[in-house]
Design a protein around this nucleic acid. Structure first.
Lengths: 333, 333
DNA sequence: CTGAAAGCGCTAACAC
DNA sequence: GTGTTAGCGCTTTCAG
């Protein structure tokens, strides 16, 4: 293990000088600087992250919602974006899982293992939020608890996203829309984005004076088929479907077709999902900007770590892209 | 921040005594012990992970292959199992990504940030392997480089897995089998498990004197359909398919059906994938024990961290489960 | 069974 | 512009 003292000896300077060269916290003569840098290179010196005086760990905690009903490919979009951003700022990422709960956060914070927290998928009344407020390290949430004073949150405006889907369909002439949501466990957990999307969807339908029915959907082919069949049977007037469930998306069109409905002629479909997925399935969609959310959250956290200011709430507006799964409603002659 | 000195003062003992109570590295009288423990509780003391003398970070690095062609739901099976195991041993997990390459490992090792490494998806000639050998910290690989002296590896015997699929089909009377593999980038990267499965498949077919054709498949519906169509067209004698591509699995049966082939009557299908997935799609399969591999790898790493012995190579034997996608070959009368 | 004290690698006063 | 030195929180000798 090469220490700063080794480097100092090799370069013929004091340890502090080496430290200053490395951190740039005081001006050093060009000659000394290059001497030191050369020694660092030659000896293969790497700072010991555990050194007490450094006080900053250069590590951020990323708290992942690895739990039932969470769609992993989408989750990983957030994660890779967040990690990439972290690495760009020379930060490492310590992985925590939601099931470690509030104690997990406390333990890691108290151990000075991380400089800050990025918490994903926060619930409306998340028990980790009080802990995040207590600990003296900055944190950024992806998602929003009901009460957000003092927190920094990044989120898609899911309420507006749900509403946007309805607006689009209403504009096309649809008078009865259905909603296929996440698996029911997700709602049972009081997951913010799921609840808000539903709420936005419902409210918009009311505003536009059109009828709506919503149903949770489990993440398998049969459940999707069953949900679609049940909707079509019980709500024969329904001509459009909003789907807020990435895992189900791949089966919705197939289910409709197998039940004798054409998309978009008989039933229009709007998804809320990452653009790539919608593109692949050729679905009209409101974009879920997972990468942007993950990236922005980490950037905000970094800003806070540097003591900079950060907006308490970053709410991305929904963006709808028309594809071939929606069309003006055909009226029977 | 509560330090060990605070606890010592509060309990009326020396700091070292507190340390010994906490680590259990020397016998302490019951009274002293309980006094100290009480103070710890009262003051809410948590050890500072960065303390130099501790030398152990109680963190392991997990190196993830977040790269094109990797099926994330399966990856996350490994990951959750590994994390769970780590937490059971009071270890935290530092996340690294494969794209950080050998330098990433070096940096983290030199910084004393982690006690060991768990590296996933190692290539046959992985450039991280030399680095892992150099650094003085234990590491466990999921996968196997061609040369594995001194390393600890955990893997499914993918060669045997590929062979097992062929054996099963040959036993059922099939004389011509096809292989749908991972996306071509995966082979271009020299990914061990992909190459070995192919090799095992090919060799077994030769041994059994049956013909075989293999094709890489990209991760989208159209590519799967295209691959299946091309196979059926160019190899009309083919009556069975081995699929080693989780992302493609969901579309294989559909593609066959849409091309007028019944499963299993016209074309039998064997998958290599996690059991849950095969169960859901009702496919005969060789089990990919992702959780067991992730779990075992972490257990081995923990053993090594404690200075224990660890088998250099843990190779799980493949296990085939029959489901409704394979049946004895129908011979034309 | 317990205390005192040295020192891990590094930074940040405080000198000059 | 540079060197000296006192700690950061903890473990671990070495002494009782």
């Amino acid at each position: 293990m090469v220490t700063i003292a080794d480097v100092a000896r090799h370069a013929g300077v004091a340890p502090s000088t080496v430290s200053y060269v490395l951190t740039g916290k005081r001006s050093i003569s060009p000659e000394t600087r290059s001497k030191v840098k050369e020694s660092v290179r030659l000896l293969g010196y790497h700072p010991n992250a555990g050194a007490l005086a450094a006080s900053r760990a250069n590590v951020v905690a990323l708290v992942l919602p690895l739990r039932p009903g969470v769609h992993l490919p989408v989750l990983m979009r957030y994660v890779t974006a967040a990690i990439t951003s972290a690495r760009e700022h020379d930060l490492d990422v310590l992985l925590l899982t939601a099931d470690q709960g509030p104690q997990g956060l406390r333990r890691v914070a108290a151990g000075a293992q991380v400089d800050g927290f990025l918490v994903m998928d926060v619930g409306l009344d998340d028990d980790r939020v009080p802990v995040l407020r207590q600990i003296s390290r900055p944190s950024v949430l992806i998602g929003r608890p009901t009460v957000l004073d003092g927190l920094i949150c990044v989120d898609l405006d899911f309420e507006a996203a749900g509403a946007r889907c309805v607006e689009h369909l209403a504009d096309l002439g649809h008078r009865y829309v259905g909603f296929l949501g996440a698996p029911s466990v997700v709602y049972q957990r009081n997951t913010g984005h799921a609840q808000r999307t539903m709420a936005g969807f419902g409210a918009a339908a009311m505003r536009r004076g059109i009828a709506s029915t919503a149903l949770p959907v489990e993440n398998d082919c049969e459940s999707v088929l069953a949900a679609v069949r049940s909707l079509l049977r019980t709500q024969p007037a329904m001509t459009a479907l909003v789907v807020h469930n990435e895992a189900a998306l791949g089966w919705v069109a197939g289910s409709l077709r197998s039940l004798g409905r054409r998309v978009p002629e008989d039933v229009a479909v709007v998804a809320i999902c990452p653009d790539e997925l919608a593109e692949q399935l050729q679905l009209t969609s409101v974009r879920l900007p997972a990468e942007e959310l993950g990236w922005r959250a980490m950037e905000l956290l970094v800003t806070r770590l540097k003591g900079g200011p950060a907006a308490p709430l970053t709410l991305l507006p929904p963006k709808l892209s028309c594809r071939s799964s929606t069309a003006p409603r055909l009226r029977r002659a």
